[in-house]
Design a protein around this nucleic acid. Structure first.
Lengths: 337, 337
DNA sequence: TTGTAAGCGTTATCAT
DNA sequence: ATGATAACGCTTACAA
């Protein structure tokens, strides 16, 4: 049995298709009686609008996309989830696109998304500068875009990020106050806001107390498990080992913890540890890890909301939203011996 | 500048739109010369087919959906990722739908997906029996469906699951051989294949050695962190505490580990632990956790492949695929004191 | 093999 | 306020 169309509804209700469309979309005023008849006909026929036809006509769909570098990273998943909730409530579904931090895949996804005519894209770009190219292309095609966690420089889009600087400073201050003077930093890539800003926060916390920033204590990584592992091992091999570690990405902390275990060091007896981002397992670790928690879910939710606003035609100048972080004190830190 | 359509291409190439469509879709044979001219015109105009128009015409899209109970659970994410890779390669994009184990949300998503006319759905249903209702409805509308991790009873769909029974037996056998006699089981819901089969595997491993299955050592959970926490605490409070724990879901192991830590027990000195499913952090835990590893990524990949086969019209009777598990021996088990 | 033309089900313009 | 009708861009009978 073929499903009913506007034409069937119109016939059944004794009105024109235009009227049917009007009551369905509820934009303009329609006479109460006709409206009733249309609604009755819709119910009687079990009419459901054909989205595909509408999509063609409107040249746009009810789907949003989240383009993230790593779907294995719970941070992004959590943000995606927040985004999904808001999207679903607004009647949108969410396409999940994993770039693996590969600019080619990112470009290719933007291509597909524009073909697919998604209504909007939430993107954590593989490159804060080059990312602007596909973003601008999308914007040109009328696709709304919001940046998440990382900025997109050179494209007029809203951005929602954590207060990385504040978070870094918060965590490191805590270590400093505990008495640590040699604090290792497992940093992220400096070309992205999160890595750079957290490092800056780390440095600020040191400066706040008049402590020197020592280059050898800062190891850059790509926020992947393997590189955090290597970076941590390098730090632990230093002649004068750090007494505390600030790991600036919760996901890659897995690598750091592996290295610590491998070196036979115990937390917090031999070394104190703080991770940035409070993942599910951090509180279950042995010992439970002190963490700088981000509002990951909220990050995604707000990104969705900003996106939906743009889709609805909001024309304000781009804004940048910063979400606060907080320190979850658990058992992985203590004063140095 | 509006983008080119088949009409523009046809004009440019001096052929009809039908011919353009034919070379674009490459179904029927088209004269070499015309084909060349069309391709040249496509290139010259930078023509890109309008998916929305095609969707309407074909009444179907290039998108697949994955409907999972919990997007926070890395197991599902990993499977989704495997699915995405296969889908992307085949030119499909992947919609991610999170049901939160709520049958209402599941129904509602199936509704949306059918409105959206996705080509296929990979589903881990919230109910192995009731799930059949929306699934059959989707099938009726020509949407292909494949079951993942959990079955769908009463609907003719392919299913891809881990060898849960074998995995449970494998892990528990290892514990038994180490000399454990009181092995606690943090079980899953019995109404789903994974929970039930892993429990059966646990029981079989005991029976293999002529050991009795003691009900008090088996605690059912819903595979969520909180309930695993409570179940574990209950087990640890038993008069005669188990000397080992088989935690039948990696994600909820977080709860179990919290409980163990809270009770002041040490792994493996006070209690041995095996988890089912080898997540990123299990190998970084202190101590590294022995785990029964599933081929999670492969699970999703195969689901996608089966789905694509169905979409392409494969008409074989439904098949059930089982993926093997393996034991990753690390440092969380030792003989009982 | 190629071309013509009829839809697919909407929305929106333009009369009325 | 309502109705007739023309798009939207594509695929595919059907005809040649």
């Amino acid at each position: 049995m073929k499903s009913a169309t506007v034409i069937d509804v119109a016939r059944q209700a004794g009105v024109s298709v235009a009227t049917v469309s009007r009551v369905l979309n509820g934009r303009v005023t329609v006479d109460g009686k006709l409206r009733e008849r249309v609604n009755a006909a819709v119910a009687a026929l079990g009419y459901r609008p054909n989205r595909l036809a509408r999509n063609l006509r409107m040249n746009s769909t009810n789907v949003l996309a989240v383009v993230i570098p790593d779907i294995q990273n719970p941070f992004f998943v959590s943000a995606a989830r927040g985004a999904e909730e808001a999207a679903f409530q607004a009647g949108y579904t969410l396409l999940l696109c994993n770039t693996d931090d590969d600019p080619e895949r990112e470009k290719s996804y933007f291509q597909v998304l524009s073909d697919e005519a998604v209504a909007g894209i939430i993107v954590c770009s593989t490159d804060e500068c080059l990312g602007a190219i596909p973003v601008r292309a999308a914007l040109d095609e009328g696709i709304a875009v919001v940046a998440l966690d990382r900025r997109v420089e050179g494209a007029p889009v809203d951005a929602v990020l954590s207060d990385n600087f504040g978070g870094g400073r918060l965590g490191v201050s805590y270590l400093v106050e505990l008495g640590h003077r040699r604090i290792g930093l497992i940093a992220g890539p400096d070309r992205f806001a999160p890595g750079r800003e957290r490092r800056l926060g780390y440095e600020q916390a040191l400066l706040d107390r008049g402590l020197a920033v020592e280059r050898e204590l800062i190891k850059a990584t790509d926020f992947k498990i393997e590189s955090a592992d290597a970076a941590t091992e390098a730090l632990l091999r230093l002649d004068e080992r750090p007494t505390a570690l600030f790991i600036s990405s919760g996901y890659s902390a897995i690598g750091a913890l592996r290295a610590i275990y491998r070196c036979g060091l115990r937390i917090p007896d031999d070394i104190s540890v703080i991770v940035f981002d409070d993942l599910d397992w951090t509180s279950a670790y042995n010992p439970p890890l002190t963490a700088v928690a981000q509002n990951t879910r909220q990050l995604g939710k707000i990104a969705s909301e900003l996106l939906l606003r743009r889709i609805r035609g909001d024309d304000e100048p781009p804004q940048e939203r910063r979400l606060s972080t907080r320190l979850e004190i658990r058992s992985s830190c203590r004063p140095p011996q």
